[in-house]
Design a protein around this nucleic acid. Structure first.
Length: 520
RNA sequence: GGCCCAUUGGUCAAGCGGCCAAGACGCCGCCCUCUCAAGGCGGAAACGGGAGUUCGAUUCUCCCAUGGGUCACCA
């Protein structure tokens, strides 16, 4: 298999990106601790796109090593979301594959031997420190910053340097003896005390850190479960992952990964760190910015396709001016060097625009299918006798978020108690007096109408305007107000008459006439 | 606080030493029009600051400022 390297052009100090076309493997490795955040979804999307754009394989792995944070149903949400947006994984817990199992809790037997191998090689050691002792190490800093909540700037107080490497130099025999005696312990990585560790990121370029900065991190917890950092390295290697794609919050722990790969003598993967997605205030995207889970967004009336399109362009650019991309289109256009390094903000206005584009691109039947449940919310009882497809047609070009629908159609169910001043409109050149006159004529005209169809209604009303020497608007406006009681409606007078049907339309026009007459 | 990263219009962003600094969302105006949308046309709106390097910096280097990330037996 051929493997060549490209110098990426963004001035990123020679990020080496292997571009083999046959062996690329990426994985999405969520931990089932809740709903699927759009940030995670975007990570999954990029992992998928990198694999697909390079002819590679996309793997799903569940990282459930924190048994304290497991949330029921979280794994299902992952499956549902991936399926709903079309990110099909080639290997995973549900579809199998040659490198399983794909759930970390089923791989427990793998981690201890790897950790012990590191101990034997001197790259790791057993630590028998109690939780209490570790906490006491942190105590001074903790008390200083304890009162601080999330916002309002940096917590006062210094941060401790972390673990003091108390057990780092325990004699090997003592360590082995205490472990054999069943004394609880963790296994820690033995970091170099001096020197620098360097790694290459495909997005951020070359990054260098002092080894002295690195803590002797825990690899294997006392409960026998691996930590995320350790399991990740072991599994990524065993699963032949070539591109480790994840949020940039992992950038600062990547040197530890690098050292782990080196300790094992394994070839490090290509690191692809992604800029984070923030809310409008530049802070981490959270509920107070609006829905942030994929399913929450769907519940608010956004189409999965629109969500994917929108977030694909958050932190990545195809370079050209195209905005609308299908998943396949993204696979074709995606390039790692189009990923940017600065954080992006999810703009709901923009999401809404994408959504409108997708909504309008839908076939009329497809739009009716997605809109009907929203219509039903405002018009229970299937909108009794209303022409739903006609209504949907009026809605389609006007809706950018499905949740807008109930508010737009509620007047159909019940005529609002409107103000007669609505009949006055300067631009339409109408006022209550003219409206009363036109409504009288329109009522007669419509009552005698043979067929209650869009075309017939249109012919009748425009004919009326012509005969009376009026502008169309001088007839249409009063009629529309009369049958809707609403200043702004989806569709004009004709559409609403058609949707409402003859009886209800005439009833409403009659009511308007009486209202107008009473007011005189 | 240490370390790491970032900084082009309000937002997403192109830009790879020489441009009157693309495009999109949003906003404003006009057209179309039976309201509102959709559509068409047009407009306002940006290189955080300071030193260098260079004939020439949005682009390269350094410093500062600001923002973010990270310092767990969480991922």
């Amino acid at each position: 298999m051929m493997c060549y390297y490209t110098m990426n052009p963004k001035g990123r100090k020679s990020a080496m990106v292997p571009t083999t076309t046959s062996s690329v493997r990426t994985r999405f490795a969520p931990s089932p601790t809740g709903f699927m955040h759009v940030g995670n979804l975007r990570t999954a999307l990029y992992e998928y796109l990198i694999a697909r754009s390079l002819g590679g394989t996309f793997v799903l792995r569940i990282e459930d090593t924190d048994r304290g944070r497991l949330v029921d149903g979280a794994v299902d949400a992952v499956y549902r979301t991936l399926a709903r947006v079309g990110l099909r994984h080639d290997e995973g817990p549900d579809v199998g594959g040659d490198f399983g199992p794909y759930v970390q809790s089923e791989r427990l037997h793998l981690y201890r031997p790897h950790a012990e191998a590191l101990v034997a090689a001197g790259h790791a050691y057993r630590c028998f420190c109690t939780k209490e002792r570790l906490e006491s190490l942190r105590a001074p800093a903790a008390s200083a910053g304890a009162a601080e909540d999330d916002g309002s700037g940096a917590a006062a107080g210094a941060f401790s340097a972390g673990y003091d490497r108390h057990c780092r130099d325990l004699p090997a025999e003592e360590s082995a003896r205490r472990a054999a005696a069943g004394e609880p312990h963790v296994i820690r990585q033995r970091m170099p005390l001096e020197g620098t560790t360097v790694f290459e990121d495909a997005v951020y370029g070359r990054i260098e850190v002092d080894d002295a900065e690195l803590e002797d991190q825990v690899l294997l917890k006392s409960d026998g479960f691996p930590t995320y950092n350790f399991a990740n390295v072991v599994d990524d290697h065993l699963m032949r992952i070539t591109h480790v794609v994840r949020g940039s919050e992992y950038l600062s722990s990547t040197p530890k990964y690098q050292l782990l790969y080196e300790a094992f003598g394994w070839k490090p993967p290509v690191y692809v760190h992604l800029p984070v997605v923030n809310g409008a205030d530049g802070k981490k995207l959270s509920k107070r910015h609006g829905a942030v889970s994929f399913e929450g967004l769907v519940d608010e009336g956004y189409l999965p396709e629109a969500i994917v399109n929108c977030i694909a362009l958050l932190g990545w650019s195809p370079g050209g001016t195209q905005e609308i991309f299908t998943l396949d289109g993204l696979c074709r256009a995606f390039r790692i060097d189009g990923i940017s390094r600065s954080p992006a903000v999810l703009d709901y206005d923009r999401l809404r625009w994408f959504n409108g584009e997708y909504l309008r691109a839908l076939a009329p039947e497809a739009f009716l299918a997605v809109a009907s449940s929203w219509i039903a919310r405002a018009l229970p009882g299937a909108g009794a006798g209303l022409d739903l497809s006609r209504l949907a047609a009026a809605l389609q070009p006007r809706v950018t978020q499905l949740s807008q629908i109930p508010g737009m159609v509620s007047f159909l169910k019940e005529l609002p108690d409107y103000d007669l001043r609505l009949f006055a409109n300067e631009k339409m050149k109408t006022d209550p007096a003219l409206a009363a006159a036109m409504l009288g004529l329109a009522e007669k005209e419509l009552a005698g109408l043979g067929e209650w169809t869009h075309d017939a209604l249109h012919a009748a009303l425009t004919g009326l305007a012509q005969r009376e020497g009026r502008k169309n608007g001088q007839v249409m406006w009063p009629v529309r107000i009369a049958v809707s009681g609403t200043e702004v409606t989806p569709g004009g007078a004709i559409e609403i008459l058609a949707v409402l049907g003859r009886d209800e339309s005439l009833r409403r026009i009659g009511m308007a006439r009486r209202k107008l007459a009473d007011a005189r």
